[in-house]
Simulated scan of single mutants.
Amino acid sequence: MENSGFIVSLLAGAAAGTSTDIVFFPIDTLKTRLQAAGGFFANGGYRGVYRGLGSAVVASAPGASLFFVTYDSMKAYVRPYMGKVFTSSAQTADTVTHMVSSSIGEIAACMVRVPAEVIKQRTQTHKSDSSFQTLSRLLRNENGEGIRKNLYRGWSTTIMREIPFTCVQFPLYEYLKKTWAQAQSRTHVAPWQGSLCGCFAGGVAAAATTPLDVLKTRLMLHERSIPVGQLARSIYREEGWKVFFRGIGPRTMWISAGGAVFLGVYETMHSVLSST
């Protein structure tokens, strides 16, 4: 990726991530409290829905920038190879390129996103009064598991959730944009059209990956590390299979609307910055 393209992706991603987290944070809080052990009201109900916002805002710009810089770079790098592998279908080559690129982008973003999620969700469920207090508690290593394990709890499950999510969202998003542009005999859709494509793609991906999101939430809120398989069996035995779809409404609504804002802002900023 050229330097100009790198800077455009960096700034557009930062703007998209920050705006989305600030606007939709209360819905994310409600979703987290629905999924947490003990239920919605035991974890704060409708009170203090902006708890944990600090950690989200601090991490949103670098996390989103990391994703888009990696995603846009990998698209340019991977597409020629996929074109040689899938010679009979350009669409298949495009789809696999978007799946690979977005997966690598999510792994890069999770280096920042996971610690922020741990801090945010613990603060959202009233385990402390502020993001700074939550971070201080984790750094004190009160459970003796080590700072790395405390800050990156749920790392594997987050990756397990994000890769299927992004493998649905971004190929669908790119396909919808491409199809819409072709229907208008254009090379690119307008930013508002990209926003609508992001809304639909995000909603589909969010609903499909809700069970993984529930597991990720429970792991991050657990006081000690626990194997994900053991946790899943324990949740199923104690609460039944329906619990794995708890929060599907707020999650789908939040990510649908968030996808519209996130990708709409990204498309707008990318278009503005690219033309300057």
Rank of each mutant, 00 (worst) to 15 (best):
A183H: 06
S55T: 05
Q133A: 15
I104M: 13
D94A: 05
L139W: 01
C110A: 02
D129I: 01
Y266K: 14
S256I: 11
P26K: 01
T179K: 11
V96L: 09
Q133K: 14
S103K: 01
L176W: 00
V57S: 07
T95L: 09
S88Q: 15
G203I: 05
M99L: 12
E145Q: 06
P191S: 14
A12I: 06
G247D: 05
S131L: 06
K216V: 01
A12V: 09
M74T: 13
I7M: 11
T123S: 09
T87V: 07
P191E: 13
G240T: 04
H188I: 14
Y46M: 12
A183W: 07
G264T: 11
Q35K: 13
P171A: 07
S55F: 00
T157K: 03
Q121S: 04
S19N: 00
L219I: 08
F25R: 05
D21F: 12
F6V: 14
H126C: 10
L34V: 00
G39Y: 03
L196A: 15
F165Y: 12
N43H: 08
I27A: 14
A108C: 04
S156K: 08
E142R: 10
F86W: 15
T32W: 13
W155I: 09
A93T: 02
G240H: 00
R218S: 09
S234W: 06
A14T: 10
S256D: 13
P80K: 01
A257S: 11
I159E: 08
K178I: 02
E223N: 14
C167L: 13
A260I: 02
D213S: 09
P164C: 04
F170A: 02
E223P: 10
R153Y: 02
K149A: 15
N141L: 00
K84F: 11
P227V: 01
I7C: 07
V204P: 15
R233S: 15
S89H: 09
S256W: 12
G258W: 04
T18W: 01
I27R: 08
Y152E: 10
L215F: 01
V272S: 13
G258M: 02
V265E: 05
E106D: 08
E106I: 08
L215D: 01
A201S: 15
E106G: 05
C199F: 13
F132T: 14
A181T: 05
A36M: 06
G105N: 03
S9N: 07
T32Q: 13
A93S: 04
M99V: 13
G13I: 01
S103T: 12
T252P: 01
Q169P: 07
T123R: 04
A260P: 02
F165I: 07
K84Q: 15
H126A: 15
L11W: 00
V214H: 08
T134V: 07
V265W: 03
A208V: 08
R224C: 09
S131Q: 03
L212D: 14
